[in-house]
Design a protein around this nucleic acid. Structure first.
Lengths: 228, 228
DNA sequence: TACTGTGAAGCTATTCACAGCG
DNA sequence: CGCTGTGAATAGCTTCACAGTA
C-alpha cells in the first residue's frame, strides 16, 4: 500500500456525490461541539446506512480509529481537501433572474469554498444593478471576465434558448466545469463537465411516486395488467 | 398476487429520473413541428445513448414502431400520463427568500402539471407581499392551507433550522411528497417521499472533478502509473 | 430495409458479515 | 469489547448485439 496521503485512489462517482452531505453533517456536529462520532451516528445525521458510509470513506483512505470512531475535525478536513474546498474556486453566474439572484446571494457558496466573482446578464435593465454587493456586468464581457478572474466554474441560469451559447463561450475561454439550471441539454467537448439541475424535473419525479401511492390506494390492486 | 403497496418495482428509479428529460425533449421536438423520431435522434436531444433510451421506454410499454420510430405526440402523452402530469398537483411553497421567490415564479411548474396554490413564510415583512400573483400567507396557517387546497407536494425553501418543523407539519396533515431545498436531512415516516436539492452540493461535486483535472495537468503524468 | 424491443453480458453500487485492530 | 475497514455476495444499472417486425 501507498503511504502518500495525496495518492489518488479511484473514488466512485456515487461516493463523490455523497461527500458534500457527509461534510455538511460533520460541520453540523462540529458546531454542536461533538468531537468524535461512530459511523452509525454520522450515517444517521447524513441520512445513509452505516455500511455505505464506511465503504464510501474507505475510498478516501483510513481516517477512523477501530473501536472508537472518527474524529470530526480530522474527517471534515480530509473530505474538504478531497473536494478541493481549500481552493476558493472563482465562480461566474450568468442570468440574474430570480434563480440567478438566489444563487448570487446563497450563503452556502461563500461558506463552502466558492467565491462568486462575477454576475452577468444580457438585459440592460439588470446590468448595472447591485446584487449581493456586486454590480451586474454585461454578458458581452464574458470572455474578459472569465479570463481576468480565472473563473473555474460557470453557472448558467439563463433561459434555455441562451444556455448553449453561453456555455460555448465559457468553454471557448477555458472553463471546464459548468452548472446548468436551464432546462436543456448542453453539448460540450470531451473533458468539460456539466451538471444539470432542473427544478421541474424534481417535482415530476415526486409526482410519479405520488401518483403510484394514490393509485394503489384507489385501486388496491397491483399495476400489472393492461389489455392490448 | 396480493395488492402489496411495496410490490412496485415496475419502473426502475433510474428510468423514472430520466422520464422528465425525455418529456422535455419531446416537447421541444413537437414545438419544432417534428412528428416522428428515432431512438437515436431522441436520445441525442435528451443527452443519453439510444440503447438506454429504448430500454427505459420499454419499461413503459411498447409505444414505438419498428423500422420507423416513435410518434412524438403519442410518446409525450404516454410519458405525461405515467408521470401523472394530467393531475395538476397542488403545490405549497414554504419560505420565500430569493430561492422560494424563484420557485414561485418558475414558469416550468405551471406549464408542466403543477399548480402552486400557496406561498407561506414566517417573516411578517414577507407575509402579505404579492409574489407571482399570489399573496404570501403566514406559515401559521399551514395546516389549514394544506387541507383546504388538498396540497399533494410540499416545497421547503426555508433555512435549515426550520426545515424539519415545516416538514413535520406537512406530514402531520397528510402530505407524502416533499421537495427539500434546505441543506439538512429530513426525517420522515415510511411512505413519505423526500427529494433533496442542494445547490452547494452540486458545486462541490463539480469542484471535485475540476480539482482532479487541475492536478493531472500540474503533475502532467498519466493516472495509471503509481510506483509501489 | 431500418428500426424497435429485449435477452444476456458486463459493470457499478449497495449490503452483508466478519476479520482485524485499537 | 466495540468499531472500522473490507472481501464477498447481492442487487441494480448500462451496454451490447441481434432477433423480430412494420
Amino acid at each position: 500500500m501507498i503511504a502518500d496521503p495525496a495518492a489518488r485512489r479511484d473514488v466512485p462517482d456515487a461516493t463523490v456525490a455523497r461527500l458534500p452531505e457527509y461534510l455538511r453533517a460533520l460541520t453540523d456536529l462540529a458546531g454542536r461541539g461533538v468531537a468524535s462520532v461512530s459511523s452509525e451516528e454520522l450515517a444517521t445525521v447524513a441520512g445513509v446506512r452505516s455500511a455505505k458510509l464506511r465503504k464510501d470513506l474507505s475510498h478516501l483512505g483510513s481516517y477512523g480509529v477501530r473501536g472508537v470512531g472518527y474524529e470530526v475535525e480530522v474527517l471534515a478536513h480530509e473530505i474538504s481537501r478531497q473536494l478541493g474546498l481549500a481552493q476558493n474556486w472563482p465562480v461566474a453566474i450568468v442570468g440574474l433572474g430570480y434563480l440567478g439572484h438566489a444563487l448570487a446571494t446563497y450563503s452556502g457558496f461563500a461558506n463552502r469554498g466558492y467565491h462568486v466573482v462575477a454576475l452577468l446578464d444580457r438585459d440592460p435593465e439588470i446590468v448595472g444593478q447591485e446584487i449581493a454587493g456586486m454590480i451586474v456586468g454585461s454578458v458581452d464581457d464574458l470572455e474578459q471576465v472569465v479570463t481576468g478572474h480565472g473563473v473555474a466554474i460557470g453557472v448558467i441560469a439563463t433561459p434555455a434558448a441562451s444556455a448553449q451559447e453561453v456555455c460555448d463561450r465559457f468553454v471557448a475561454v477555458g472553463v471546464r466545469s459548468v452548472l446548468n439550471f436551464a432546462p436543456c441539454v448542453l453539448s460540450v467537448p470531451q473533458g468539460v463537465h456539466v451538471r444539470k439541475v432542473d427544478l421541474a424535473t424534481e417535482l415530476q419525479i415526486l409526482a410519479f411516486h405520488e401518483q403510484r401511492k394514490t393509485e394503489s390506494v384507489r385501486e388496491s390492486r397491483p399495476l400489472l395488467e393492461v389489455s392490448p
